[in-house]
């Protein structure tokens, strides 16, 4: 059974049709990529599935639960972690705090513990810090743990955001342009990190990307979105040779 399933999703912003008849099947352990030109509606699809907008039509199921009408925090608790295209970090909080914050729902201590401390809180904090440190090591940012997120190099900020998304123990991880603004060096590092979390944490990944090399290398399946509609879906090889994709990306080829 599919872990994440989207059926016939359509969304209008006022009179503008942003997404039309979109379908997605994400199997456990798979990596699926979503490519397409700017403004095609890729981030809108992320926002629709993660509950920031409610789709005008269509159905979304995560692990058998219907997501339509649920709030973003509920959908996150059901196992959907995500990052953002333009990095939504909490600027003046430390790297370690970012990851601990994301584990918030895994903490059970009460208001007394919050003000005065309690044994439960100390135990939970200890466990949490260990978990957070493990995540920071996975993403190669453990060295920055007590630095403020805002003071980190760009690539490291992206990795902190991913570590934060992984801290909620997601079944599905959404990555919105994980390599935006990265140097080729950082790009290769990102590929190996995504491979690593994919195997280590057994998480299915759905990602938006512009760099075809990156998508081709990582994804089992790729969808191409143009003007809110999927014009092609298939393996990297199929997508690479699809004339419609080439047209959308490179412009129409004139054959005389």
């Amino acid at each position: 059974m599919a872990l994440l399933r989207v059926d016939n999703m359509t969304h209008y912003f006022g009179g503008l049709r942003a997404v039309h008849n979109y379908n997605l099947v994400l199997e456990p352990g798979h990596i699926v990529g979503l490519i397409g030109p700017n403004g095609a509606g890729k981030t809108t699809i992320f926002n629709l599935i993660s509950g920031i907008h409610t789709p005008t039509e269509g159905n979304i199921e995560l692990d058998g639960h219907n997501l339509i009408g649920h709030h973003p925090h509920e959908i996150a608790s059901m196992g959907l972690g995500r990052t953002f295209q333009n990095l939504l970090l909490w600027r003046h909080m430390t790297v370690l705090e970012h990851v601990k914050m994301a584990c918030y729902s895994q903490l059970e201590y009460g208001i007394w513990g919050a003000f005065f401390g309690s044994r439960l809180r100390r135990q939970e904090e200890k466990r949490l810090t260990a978990k957070a440190m493990h995540l920071l090591e996975t993403f190669d940012v453990a060295g920055f743990r007590s630095q403020l997120a805002v003071s980190l190099p760009y690539g490291a900020q992206r990795r902190v955001e991913m570590a934060r998304a992984m801290a909620i123990n997601p079944k599905v991880l959404f990555l919105d342009e994980p390599t935006a603004g990265m140097t080729p060096d950082e790009l290769n590092r990102m590929i190996s990190i995504i491979r690593k979390i994919h195997t280590d944490f057994d998480v299915a990944i759905f990602l938006i990307e512009h760099r075809l090399k990156f998508v081709m290398e990582l994804c089992e399946r790729i969808q191409t979105l143009v003007f809110g509609e999927v014009i092609a879906e298939g393996t990297p090889a199929e997508i690479k040779n699809n004339p419609q994709v080439i047209e959308a990306y490179l412009g129409k080829e004139d054959i005389h």
Binding site: P72, W90, Y104
Partner: peptide, 17 residues
């Protein structure tokens, strides 16, 4: 921490559950 996080970025908080 949640309050501080909200004060930095409102949007990312719900997505942490």
């Amino acid at each position: 921490m949640a309050m501080r996080a909200m004060s930095f970025d409102f949007q990312a908080v719900p997505l942490m559950g």
